[in-house]
Design a protein around this nucleic acid. Structure first.
Lengths: 336, 336
DNA sequence: CTGAAAGCGCTTACAG
DNA sequence: CTGAAAGCGCTTACAG
């Protein structure tokens, strides 16, 4: 910048002002400065800019991905949604992976603060998030995909897990299925899974059916455990259909059914929460509940940006926004 | 930092030195400083640190993902591999998505430079990368997953597309398939696809077979186009097997075969380059060529870090390293 | 209409 | 063994 100023015979202030358009500069001087910039190959230094303005135009993105998950594609979709709106507004995205562990999450958040990010979008892992307000005292943040435990009203955008499940299970019941098993995560462990279970139960209730406890099967988020739990459900109960709360478990169930020679949908009908491409090309194709991951990311980012704008004006009156995104039932061939 | 210094009754230099362990400080003073840090809740400002040291401990990650691709999971795996080694060494990762467009790639790289990143890992889109050396004059960078076009010897780590394809196709031939079709990207468009085609051809050659031109079918990277190209191959040629250069096309082919009532492997044998979870649970499960995406990311990051170290010592003598990662044939049920 | 100067929060020779 | 001061590259009151 100094060399630009020298070459253009102006002060650095003026150079700064023509770059930022932050006060009037005569056309003639502007041109001189621009030429000097070209001639010297000037590249603005965002770091210095940030130090001075105390805004980094960077937001932290805290995501939970294990090394071998295939639900990564879903989270990636969210990330893309977020990035698409952020980039457009001149923000950069700093990635931080928590591996879905609360302790790492805390650590990564701390690190991001150190990096002076302007705001943060968090896909929280499970566990008590009571530490958040203290840690992020004067930072703006929103949650996405999952609602954090142990916190009062927050800003978030998540899929309507309850509604999506309620709707799908209701329809299965209306097709005549009165004995539907559910594979869900450990109860009390994952809020989304719990919500899907709640939707499942509600559907039963509304149709005056009773949920038999042996229909509810807690399961790890692995193909293997789902394989085993599917086997157990099939061998020890009289279910005619099964509702599965996520993709990984869905793969395990499908794998088991295939290996056991159990036909879909003739022997067992199937619904999987989460819509991945494979469910469409599988034989038979599988009915799923689709979440709008990209859109979720988009809205999360918009929400954060709004908060950032808002902060500049008046701190106090912001009212947390809890956004529930509708899901879509992708009807395919796995229902009798 | 000033308040810490004040509270501990030392100079800011001393605070800085105890934080960084960069010169001797007596235990007693150290303790005073640490207490003061706790008391004031001091958080180091990485931005100021970066401005001063001219190192941001940030590396840029340039990745090509379209909005709706499902190959994202593969790239995500690479990203995770990269991030895992980088984070461990104190680096942060700044994401930049090019959407696989060369013009956006150039733009994003420029933006990252502005952000003063220390180095860059690039998954290049196709097209002439001649602009790179000029743009990244005194930055360190490596390529991953794809070799950039139009550049001399570079640092990169990619899968051995040629070898993996050669091996798989050879084995199909040895099983008696002499009429194998291939679905590949537009020739000259994607280097990886071209390499896979080259492996395919080489296998034919080595077995003294001639590749009939109608066996080679260029195809867009979409389920739909693959569907149509599969149909064409099946209806207009006498192939008994098909080799598909990527996952998306693989899905399209499988979809077509299913809808056309063509049985795998009885009517047609199948090999897909890229190993996704669905290929294992599909009926029949599908033989694939697996790339070690996470490992590729890891090695890419290691390579970049080495270059960064090296730079500190002597600039001149670095010899570009071209790393080819072996692939693995995942033998399953789709071969007769 | 433009410039000189202070300052953002650090690090690092230099001095003692 | 520790401190005072310059400087990284910007922005922004303040002055004229």
């Amino acid at each position: 910048m100094k060399d630009v100023a020298a070459k253009a015979n102006v002060s650095v202030s003026t150079v700064s002002h023509v770059i930022n358009g932050t006060r009037f500069v005569s056309e003639e001087v502007k041109n001189r400065v621009r030429e000097a910039m070209d001639a010297t190959g000037y590249i603005p230094n965002v770091v210095a800019h940030s130090l001075r303005t105390k805004r980094t135009n960077t937001i932290g993105l805290v995501i939970p991905i294990g090394n071998d998950e295939n639900s990564n594609i879903f989270i990636m979709q969210i990330v893309l949604g977020i990035d698409s709106v952020l980039r457009e507004r001149g923000y950069c995205t700093l990635l931080a992976n928590t591996k879905d562990e609360l302790s790492r999450e805390k650590e990564e958040i701390r690190h991001l603060i150190t990096r002076q990010i302007d705001g943060m979008i968090i896909i929280p892992s499970s566990g008590d998030h009571g530490f958040i307000p203290g840690l992020l005292k004067d930072k703006q943040y929103v949650f996405v995909d999952r609602i954090p435990d142990g916190l009062p009203k927050q800003d978030y955008v998540v899929s309507d897990s309850f509604g999506g499940s309620y709707d799908a299970v209701s329809r299965m019941i209306e097709r005549g299925h009165t004995k539907i098993g559910i594979l869900c995560a450990e109860i009390g462990g994952y809020r989304n899974s719990d919500e899907r279970l709640r939707g499942f139960r509600k559907a039963y209730e509304e149709h005056n059916l009773e949920v038999r406890t042996e229909y509810i099967c807690e399961c790890d988020a692995s193909i293997q455990d789902a394989w085993e739990k599917a086997k157990r459900l099939v061998e020890h109960t009289d279910i005619t259909a099964v509702f599965i709360v996520n993709n990984v478990m869905g793969m395990g169930v499908v794998k088991y059914l295939k290996e056991a020679g159990i036909r879909i949908p003739d022997d067992i009908s199937l619904t999987i929460f989460d819509d991945y491409a494979w469910t469409d090309i599988y034989t038979p194709s599988i009915t799923t509940i689709r979440q709008e991951a990209f859109e979720m990311g988009r809205q999360g980012a918009e929400l954060l940006l709004e908060k950032l704008m808002f902060k500049d004006q008046d701190e106090i009156t912001w009212k947390p926004r809890e956004i529930l995104l509708p899901t879509r039932l992708m009807m395919r061939e796995s229902w009798k």
